[in-house]
Structure formats: C-alpha cells, structure tokens
Nucleic acid binder design. Structure first.
Lengths: 344, 344
DNA sequence: TACGTTTGCTTAAACGTATAAGCAATCTTA
DNA sequence: TAAGATTGCTTATACGTTTAAGCAAACGTA
C-alpha cells in the first residue's frame, strides 16, 4: 500500500510547519491567526494531494476513536442482521463507525469480542448479552466503559438497556387468544435466564391468570438454544399429544421457534387455527407461504436500534451518566392464526 | 471511561523505562538482554494491573491495524449476512477484526464507506461492488490499497476477485430443465452490468442454445433493483401471460427474486412443476413452506468467504501481488420444482 | 522614540507503542 | 591489569495528529 499523504507532506510542499497545516485544516485559522494567503494555499495543496486525515492518529491523540463495537448473538439471523443494519445507519449519522461480531450465545466468544473491541479503543459497546455473562458486564461497569444492553438483560443489574415491552406484548398476545375462545394455551420458549425470555413467559402466565385460566406446567416447554430445531420438534410432539390433554393454541417466544414449529404443524397436517391457534413473537419471511396468515408481535427494530445508539452516545459524552432503561412498544399484527374459535 | 493502564504505568510501578517493559511484553527479553528478575517482575505487574495493549497506538506505529473493511450490498439480506458471518470468523482466525457497512447498491454510499474505512487505516477491503463503481475501484488500485471483489465484478478490470461459477451453475440448471422436457424457459434477473448477472444470463442463453432451443427475447425480463418486488410481480404477469406464448419453466437469478416470484405463483394457484417448472439461484428459508420442494443452486458461501479473506491477506502481505481470480464451484440441489415434465 | 499590542508563524510536547542506539558497570581474557 | 566483550538498562526517535506556548516582526499609540 502506497504511503498516504500526511499533514507533514502538505507542510513540506507549502513550506510551513505541520502545526499551521493542522490549524487550517481544522478550520481554526481565526484562533491561530493564520494569514489568509497561506491558508488558501494550504487548502489548495491539501485538496490537490487529496489529503485524508488519519483517524488512527487522531484517535490516539484524543483517546476516542468514534467507533462503537456491536456484539449480537448471530449476525446471520435476520432479526439481528436488521438491528445491525439500523445501528450501522444510526451510528453513521452521528459520525461513528461500527465494529461487529457474533457471540453465538457463547460466553467465551462474548468475552473475546469484548476484549478485541476494547483493545481497539472503541468508545462504547452495544451488546446483546449472553446467558451468564453478568461478570463480563460488571467488569465493563468497573472499568467505566460506556455500553448499552440491547434486546435482553439481567434482572439484578442496573445498566443502560433498550428492550421491547416483552411482558406486555406477550400478555396482549395471549389475551387475544383467550378472548377468542382458546382455553388451553401453551408456549414454547428458550431455556435461558435472560430477561427477554423471563418477561415473555411471565406475560404469558399473567395473561392466563387474568383470564381466569389455571396454568398447567406441561403447557410450557423451554428448549435449549443449542440444537433447538430438534428440541422444538420434540416440544411440539409433547404439546400436541392427545393423550396428555393437548393444547388448543400455542404462543412461540421467537421467530426461530415459530418457524420450526410451523414445520411440524405443516407435517402433521394440522389446520390453523381450527386445530391449533397460534401467535409468534417476531415475524419471518416464511410466514407468507403458510396457508393461513400468522398473527405475530412486531417489534419496532428501528426504534430499538436508534435508542440503543442514542443511549450509548449519551453515555459516551457524559461520564456521570445514570443508567437508562428504554422500553420500546411493539405491535400485534393480527392474522388468521388467532381467529375466534368456532363453537362446536 | 477510566484511563486504561499503559506501558508507562507499568514502567513507573516497577521503576524501569517504558522501553524495557515493551521488550518484555513482546517476548524480546533475549534480544534486548533483559535481566531475569526484572523481566519476571514486569510480567507480574502487567498481569496484576491487567494490562491490555492499545492496538490503536500499535497501528499508528506499524502503519497497519489488523482490521479489514467489508462492504456488502445489504447486511440484512441473509445471503450477505451469512457471508459477513463467515468472513468475521475467518478474519478472527487470522487475527483480524472486521469493520462493516452496507452500500445499498448505491454509488455514493459505497464511496462513503470506502473513505471511512481508509481513513480508519484498514489494511484492506472486501467489497461487493456496486454497478458503476469502476472508478472507485480503479482509485483503490491507483492508491495501492489491497482489496478483493466478492460475489461480482467488472468485465474490464483485472482485480482480485472471488465469485461463484455463475455461468456454469446457471448453464447446468437450465440444462436440467431442458433435459426434463421443458421447452420454453424464461428467466427473471436483475438489470445490472455486474458480472454475476451477466454470467448467469449468459449461462442461461448458452444452455438453451446447447439444447437447440432458440432464445426469445421476451423470455428474459430484467428488473431494476430498486423497488424490485413490484417489478418482479409485473415480470411474472408478463411471462405467464397465455396470449403471448407463456413459458413452461422459469429460472430466477437470485433468492430475493425467487421469493417474490413464488408469491405470485402462490396467488395464481399455479401448480409447480406441472404448470411451471422452476429453479432458483440461492436458497431461502421460505422454500420449506412451499408445497413443492424447490430446485436451487447452492453457492458455497463458506468457501467464498474463506477465499476472499485469504486472497486479501495474501495481497496485504505481498505488495507485488498479482490479481487473483478465484471461482468457487456451486452445487445444484434437486427438488420437485424441476421434475421431468409429464407428457400430455 | 519607546513601549505595548497584534500578527503570523514555529517549537515543543503529548497520545501509547516499538526499537535502534547509547552508555555505564561488570565480566573475560591474555 | 588493561583492553575488549558482555550485560542490563536508559535515551531518543518515530508513527500522524493536535494545541499550548513561544518568539520574532510589524504595527499602534503616547
């Protein structure tokens, strides 16, 4: 790679000091009392040589790099990819660039990414935390690193965080089912202590209670994230088993679970919603090809990304910033899959 | 953000010069003839203070940052997200970190990203170039910036490039259709001068020729990328219009086109493959919910990402590197949608 | 005319790191 | 025991940038 032109090259060409060039190029001609003539010349030469400032050097000087690190669970999941996309845009608007990495829901990868990013002097981090990563996060707090948790968090920590109204969204979804006559409503969720799942599950339970339906423990199946496809299939088999009092509707805690569940429903030739009502948390392209339109909870990904970046920037620019919790409202897009139950 | 510990802090605590600390921490104790005792102490203190090197400073010093810039068309498209994911992994293996951005197929955005990345002193770039960006790319060559084009390129430029065997893949796909008795095979592609499209289209035409079928210009519809959903729908209407000699099979140049086309097929209640045979370039999750399994060309995304990173690293580490073209073979996954045509 | 002010620039230091060069003190060797 | 070699460290410089401080020369004012 050819050497790039530096301020020094311009200084030599014009025959002045690097300081003068720096003043001119930063628009500080007034404060630095640079002569008009020479200022013009410097600008001209800089343009001719196509000078571009070295942001690395600037970063070293100022101790900030205008870069933020983004750690998502898996960038190849459309949900996170869309978030990443929006974050990239919002960051760019504010003059920031994004470093990114996927944690794969693994503690070690998450730690590696945090280290890498910090060593690269990012000004702050946006993190979808992995289960059990409280220590990693606490370490960030201890170091005073600005960061925002996104999509999920921990019950016992006070941090910046931006999440969907998980509880209320799921509450409303289940209420919609009860109102429409479903009585035995089950749920498939991920088995994780992270708040987004806890909240969604609680929302489900509270809605049942609110409707005067007693929750049965075998209505709720929690599957591990690793190898979830198999586990969702098993969960569905169990929930739909006629001998053990099968459910008449299901809510799914994420789009990935929904897609797997739909495959099972498809294979079993179940009729939605007559045999089984359903609502998904988050959407999927695949829904469009299902014979019945699927009711789903639509998170406001745009707002989540924007708020995350904004909250992070606030934290970066204000050292004694108080942890800020932002809850972004979601919407329910109603389709056929939660339609009023036909009375037999 | 609290100040991070620097080599200087360690030096002060131990009571030696920063040079000595640097030697020890870089394992150059031998060459620099550092005493055993003091070396141990330095290491101990460094560990105690949890020293992490400042990669920004190092980057300034060495003129390289171990960072690569990745410019994809749209990170929220699963195709690019998967590539990004693999590139991230491969880069990490080699001690590199990835900066990323989406060009949205827009010239200006592409240029902005290139500038941003270069100003941040990335060591090289992996780019899915935008139509008409020859000048931007030529500029990189002129500057001697290491880079690799990925997924697509330009006919008239000699650069590092990693692509799928676009021509052959499409050729095989169309041959499969002709062998199975389809006679009037159409294609929906994007209207772009980029090589991946040109090659796919040429593969399609060559296969027809090879099968002794005369190509009709109204069998091929090129839609613009902007607002492609509407245009695909229109294209389908035209191609399936009985009055104008409708096609009996279609190949789609990308997964995004295929998905939109499937929606139309679904709405029109066409039977695949009896009414219409089809093959897609790339897969989509949505295929699983279509009643007929879809035949598609499966690109080796893993190989493409790996080769891209490797080719880039070669370029970075070898200044008089010759442009390298890598063609990655793809496979055809055969489903019902290209099944042998029933003889009436 | 002498002194203070303004103008227009340069010098120097700093960010954190790496490394060539330098310099005492100690150790070898004849 | 004196010269050379070796050991163990420090000093200085550089990467590209910013900015406070410094310093002449020209100007303004009494």
């Amino acid at each position: 790679m050819k050497k790039r032109v530096s301020i020094k090259d311009i200084a030599e060409k014009v025959g002045v000091s690097t300081a003068l060039v720096s003043y001119v190029l930063n628009g500080k001609e007034r404060e630095a009392r640079v002569g008009e003539e020479i200022a013009k010349k410097v600008k001209k030469v800089a343009a001719e040589m196509n000078y571009q400032p070295n942001l690395i050097a600037r970063g070293l000087k100022f101790g900030r790099t205008n870069t933020i690190g983004l750690i998502v669970a898996d960038i190849s999941n459309p949900f996170f990819a869309t978030l990443a996309r929006n974050i990239e845009l919002e960051a760019q608007k504010n003059g920031y660039t994004v470093l990114f990495g996927s944690s794969d829901e693994q503690l070690e990868k998450s730690q590696n990414l945090i280290n890498t990013f910090l060593n690269r002097q990012v000004d702050g981090l946006i993190i979808t935390p992995v289960a059990g990563s409280q220590r990693q996060i606490a370490e960030l707090q201890k170091k005073g690193v600005p960061f925002v948790l996104m999509d999920r968090g921990f019950l016992d920590m006070e941090t910046n965080i931006v999440v969907t109204d998980n509880h209320d969204a799921m509450f409303s979804a289940v209420k919609l089912l009860t109102k429409n006559g479903y009585k035995k409503i089950g749920m498939v969720a991920y088995d994780t202590p992270l708040t987004h799942m806890k909240d969604r599950i609680q929302g489900y339970k509270d809605a049942l209670k609110d409707a005067g339906i007693r929750f049965r423990s075998n209505w709720l199946v929690k599957v591990p994230y690793q190898d979830y496809k198999t586990h969702v299939a098993e969960a569905m088999a169990q929930l739909l088993d006629k001998r053990s009092n099968a459910v008449d509707a299901l809510v799914f805690a994420t789009n990935s679970i929904s897609v797997q569940a739909l495959k099972v429903i498809h294979k079993k030739n179940l009729i939605v919603p007559d045999d089984l009502g359903m609502i998904s948390f988050d959407e999927s392209d695949t829904f469009e090809f299902f014979y019945a339109s699927i009711t789903y909870i639509k998170q406001n990904l745009n707002a989540i990304s924007e708020k995350s970046v904004q909250s992070l920037l606030k934290n970066i620019n204000n050292s004694n910033h108080q942890p800020l919790k932002v809850v972004v409202p979601s919407a329910i897009i109603v389709g056929q899959s939660s339609r009023k139950k036909a009375t037999k």
